[in-house]
Simulated assay, not measured.
Amino acid sequence: MSQLNLKEIPRFKTLAREEFIKNYLKPQKPVVIEQLTSDWPAYEKWNLEYINSIAGDKTVPLYDDRPVKHDEGFNQAHAEMKMSEYIDLLKKGPTNFRIFLYNIMKEVPSLQTDFKYPDLGMKLIKGLPMMFFGGTDSKVFMHYDIDFTNILHFHFHGKKRCIILAPDQSKFMYKVPNALITREDIDFSNPDLEKWPALKQAQGHVCELNHGEMLYMPEGYWHYMHYLTPGFSISLRSYPRKIKNLSKALYNIMIMRHYDNLMRRLKGQDWIDYKNEQAIERTHKKLGIF
């Protein structure tokens, strides 16, 4: 076992709009801004107890780390429970259950007054602030987003470790064809580089996000999240700036996702197994690994 080749993501307490655009948005490079939320009501208010007090009665979708199955729909939840029950679960100790892509603002509109859309030169999509929750040691599999959006990812209540890689690293990642994920049996916290030798060539970035800190992830970046403590995050997004990425997003949404669902219905688990085998074969063939 050994570690991935990861560089710490640059971090600043504050960053002027012009600097962010010039040094990070235009060249599509990640950055952490530590105090972007310091004037948000959320900075003082947002913790698990507060979420419980205003959303404890809401039924929430839960996901765990089980492998993708042919009979599960795209982003289909694995379980449901009341938010209050889930928060109790987070406080008791480690759990694999996570809340993923949850539009809590739709369920609890009062939360919308707790945050602001920062002016960083991005046309942020209003109405789509998604929330994510996780418990100690829960992990979000390595993936990239279907719509290739630029992401401002804000973390609250605790700490989590983020590993991200640029799109040009896909050739080393054991990407599953007709999917947005890598092989799910790769532990990116501690990868077996003898079993997955292509990862030795991958170049990535890492940071630890604390309460109130924001990670900018450029469009199409792979990301893997490891909750070091219980906590939650919110993502604000803007559409792809690059025409080729907008085209990829449209292809993913309009063609790839539907083709994959069709093949699951026709071939069942054999389709999933085939894709996982192809992730290895295609990666090793491109890199000349035998």
Results as ranks from 00 to 15, higher is better:
residue 2 S to H: 15
residue 4 L to M: 10
residue 9 I to D: 01
residue 9 I to N: 02
residue 10 P to T: 01
residue 15 L to F: 10
residue 15 L to T: 09
residue 17 R to K: 15
residue 20 F to N: 03
residue 24 Y to S: 04
residue 25 L to H: 11
residue 27 P to C: 09
residue 32 V to N: 08
residue 45 K to Y: 15
residue 52 N to M: 06
residue 55 A to D: 12
residue 66 R to A: 07
residue 78 H to F: 09
residue 88 D to C: 10
residue 90 L to M: 05
residue 94 P to E: 13
residue 95 T to K: 07
residue 97 F to T: 02
residue 99 I to P: 04
residue 101 L to A: 04
residue 104 I to Q: 00
residue 106 K to C: 08
residue 110 S to E: 11
residue 110 S to F: 05
residue 112 Q to E: 02
residue 115 F to L: 09
residue 120 L to N: 05
residue 122 M to Q: 09
residue 124 L to E: 01
residue 127 G to S: 04
residue 130 M to N: 06
residue 131 M to Y: 03
residue 132 F to T: 00
residue 134 G to A: 03
residue 145 D to P: 00
residue 157 H to L: 00
residue 158 G to T: 01
residue 158 G to W: 02
residue 158 G to A: 02
residue 161 R to C: 08
residue 163 I to T: 05
residue 167 P to A: 13
residue 176 V to T: 14
residue 177 P to V: 14
residue 183 R to M: 03
residue 186 I to F: 04
residue 186 I to M: 04
residue 187 D to F: 06
residue 188 F to V: 08
residue 199 L to Y: 00
residue 203 Q to C: 04
residue 208 E to D: 15
residue 209 L to H: 12
residue 209 L to W: 11
residue 224 Y to M: 06
residue 226 H to Q: 10
residue 227 Y to D: 07
residue 232 F to D: 02
residue 233 S to M: 08
residue 241 R to P: 10
residue 242 K to E: 15
residue 252 N to W: 03
residue 255 I to F: 05
residue 257 R to T: 08
residue 259 Y to A: 02
residue 263 M to Q: 11
residue 263 M to H: 09
residue 264 R to C: 04
residue 270 D to I: 10
residue 274 Y to Q: 11
residue 277 E to W: 09
residue 278 Q to R: 14
residue 279 A to E: 03
residue 280 I to H: 03
residue 287 L to D: 08
residue 288 G to C: 15
residue 289 I to Y: 13
residue 289 I to D: 13
residue 290 F to W: 14
